[in-house]
Amino acid sequence: MVNKMMFVLLKQLVKKPATNPFPVKHAPKNVTELIEKVQRGEVKINPPVPVPEGFRGKLVYDPERCIGCQLCIKVCPADAMEWIPELRKIRHYVSRCMFCALCVDICPGKKFPGEKKNVKALRMSEDFLLADYDKYSDSLIEEPPEAKEGGV
């Protein structure tokens, strides 16, 4: 007997899979080999599902625009912002961030000569592939370049 449930489920067999096979259709046996193949152009990566407008991805920090007001530190619920007193700038730990964008909302930013409006020092990018073995890896810390070089 084919009841409604079986009918609905059987219908799924002829449908296209709903899952986007990102980055490749099947898990590779050897990841490094796959990466090399992609670099040589032998394998094409299936792109991820595009993110919508206003997506909250990894935070991007522009130290040039930062006036050191520390408001972002005041509102950040996750304590992902650190004050660098020597430079009067901030350091952002992506691994602690919970993507609420409160810091972006509150950041006053600064305008360069010739600009009409302030531009914020913080903004949310579309970058969401953030997995890493080290939560303090370079790609997961946003800080002024001087901080990286000077080791502060």
Binding site: V51, P52, E53, G54, F55, R56, M98, F99, C100, A101, L102, M124
Partner: peptide, 11 residues
């Protein structure tokens, strides 16, 4: 996600 920017924890 379209309305808020996040799939869960919409903030």
């Amino acid at each position: 996600e379209l309305l808020t920017g996040n799939r869960i924890n919409y903030s």
